[in-house]
């Protein structure tokens, strides 16, 4: 058992998987430059010393290297491809959406694309283009699975699951939760470290976790918003409201059963997300809940989200953009009234 942050846990996981299986390799920008950063947030720091032939530093060419990883995966390797900021996935949309996601289907089930894509998300003082929670953009994409680990325990377990899966899995990681150290430390970071067991555990695909039990309202959020929901739940508790916090961990496939069990108990549900409300994750989750569980609902659900605008830079505007703990508290109270 040891205490690790998310960046350290992912590094440990990648190291273990590469040692366990020689088909595993990493590909991305600045991931393995001696004297460099180990990717944008230190996740792969130093791994080139252990695996000099399997840490591939690429040119700045996201579409190209995602396609290269896809081609290598179809030939039986198991790439872990990462982008420095998830926003850069827009450059790679063709390869990710048209090839990575569709190759198996288009081949009638013959091709396998055992590939992991890692991408940092979150609004962190970098303006509009290093800020987006790109998991939202992949929600309608068929053919990939989407994970959002909020703790170091889950990050490591999900990474193992993803590397060992024969299907493409995207892991969205939050910049403020990495616990990156040194020059790559983030201001405003949030402690998401966990006690990591020594055994080789994994996190099953599509299984949510109830982070806090409660009986009055269900709050669903991933990544940073899950941690804010927990903080909000603490405050609500003091005000006599018992909130249950669900961390889906996987957006695709989504664990509707865990949500159903909770909604049956509480009859009230809200989602919290860091992206604009329009067409967002909350829209998908809430629509499904309304379709499937309307008999259990005592009040219309709430989607708490960023406003429908571009991610701004100036700190007061940025704070306004991201749902805060007090926003979650207020929304929960409003819903229950």
């Amino acid at each position: 058992m040891k205490r690790l942050g998310i960046a350290e846990a992912l590094r440990e996981g990648i190291r273990q998987e590469m040692a366990r299986d020689e088909r595993v390799f990493c590909i991305g920008e600045d991931i393995a430059i001696p004297g460099g950063w180990g990717g944008a947030f230190t996740v792969t720091l130093g791994l080139e010393k252990d695996f000099p032939d399997r840490m591939l530093n690429t040119p700045i060419a996201e579409n190209g290297f995602m396609g290269i990883a896809c081609g290598a995966a179809m030939m039986g390797l198991r790439p872990i491809a990462d982008v420095q900021y998830s926003d850069f996935l827009f450059c790679a949309m063709d390869q990710v959406c048209n090839n990575v996601a569709k190759m198996r289907y288009m081949s009638g089930g013959k091709a396998k694309v055992p590939m992991v894509i890692r991408a940092p998300v979150g609004v962190t003082g970098r303006g509009s283009q290093h800020a987006q929670n790109m998991e939202t953009f992949f929600m309608p994409l068929q053919g990939v699975r989407i994970a959002c680990p909020a703790t170091a325990y889950d990050a490591l377990g999900i990474l193992r699951t993803a590397v060992r899966s024969d299907d493409p899995i995207m892991i969205f990681e939050h910049k403020l939760l990495y616990g990156s150290k040194g020059a790559r430390a983030e201001s405003g970071a949030f402690d998401a470290s966990s006690d990591i067991p020594d055994e080789d555990y994994t996190v099953p695909i599509g299984k949510a976790v109830v982070r806090k039990e409660g009986k009055d309202i269900t709050i669903i959020g991933t990544l940073l918003m899950m941690h804010r929901a927990l903080q909000a739940a603490e405050q609500l508790e003091k005000q006599g409201i018992s909130a249950e916090v669900i961390d889906p961990r996987w957006l695709v496939p989504f664990d509707l059963e865990t949500v159903r069990k909770s909604v049956r108990k509480t009859g009230a549900v809200m989602t919290v997300e860091e992206s604009a409300k329009q067409g967002g994750i909350g829209a998908e989750i809430v629509a499904t809940i309304v379709e499937e569980m309307s008999d259990d609902l005592k009040a219309p659900p709430i989607r708490l989200a960023a406003p429908n605008t571009v991610v701004p830079f100036a700190p007061p505007m940025e704070k306004f953009y991201i749902p805060q703990v007090e926003d979650i508290v207020d929304a929960a109270k409003k819903l229950l009234n």
């Binding site: 390799f25 190209g64 396609g67 290269i68 081609g71 290598a72 390797l77 390869q95």
Partner: peptide, 14 residues
Amino acid sequence: IPLATGAALAFKMR
């Protein structure tokens, strides 16, 4: 084009 390049990468790595 990237897919063929990736297949070639796999051949070279193995």
